[in-house]
């Protein structure tokens, strides 16, 4: 029953949104789950299991490769074949950065729709939080600060117009550029 209600709500939210995403099962994200499964296998020295875990996100990888990072799939496969933990970690982080880019760029295209833009930026922050442990402190804080600026830049419709703030596309795009710059360092 809960799942049916959930699915109904999902369909309400996602209908007609460009680049809209769907929530996976509560609290779960295929990329984050796959990352943990890959690391679990790598930590155990079982690289076949790591490849199987990576297959679970092959669709996501293909989509990100087509639209956001042209060499991503190939680099990811090479990393897994290398059986080197550090190389695999770099490839996984690259996937996360592509996912964050996807959400933030979709936010830019939806700045006229506050709800959608906000959800997209918040979602990108969840991926950022999941990978933030890998980042040196200064890089982490720079990206975090820029994400907050992006959230500010999407404006606010207020309640019945009270507290209304228009979106600022230039500030948003500058903040997104800063986020990606911080993550690329």
């Amino acid at each position: 029953m809960v799942r049916i209600f959930y699915a109904l709500l999902m369909s309400l939210l996602t209908t007609g949104q460009a680049h809209a995403y769907s929530y996976a099962a509560a609290g779960k994200e295929p990329l984050i789950d796959a990352r943990e499964a890959i690391y679990k296998a790598v930590n155990a020295g079982d690289f076949e299991a790591a490849k199987l875990a990576a297959n679970e996100i092959s669709e996501e990888l293909a989509y990100l490769t087509t639209d956001y990072d042209s060499g991503l799939s190939e680099a990811f496969e090479k990393a897994l074949a290398s059986q080197d933990t550090a190389t695999i970690a770099v490839a996984i982080n690259r996937v996360f950065v592509a996912e964050i880019t996807r959400r933030l760029q979709a936010g830019s295209e939806n700045l006229n729709d506050y709800q959608t833009a906000k959800v997209l930026v918040v979602k990108s922050k969840r991926f950022f939080d999941a990978m933030a442990g890998e980042l040196p402190g200064k890089q982490r804080q720079a990206a975090d600060q820029s994400l907050r600026q992006a959230l500010e830049a999407i404006g606010n419709p207020g309640v019945f117009g009270v507290g209304k703030r228009e979106a600022d596309p230039a500030a948003y795009n500058a903040a997104v550029e800063d986020v990606l710059k911080a993550l690329a360092n």
Partner: peptide, 16 residues
């Protein structure tokens, strides 16, 4: 800001 901070919830990636 000077430290890397791992979330222990992500047990496998932290270990790696």
């Amino acid at each position: 800001p000077q430290h890397k901070i791992h979330d222990a919830f992500f047990f496998d990636s932290v270990e790696s």
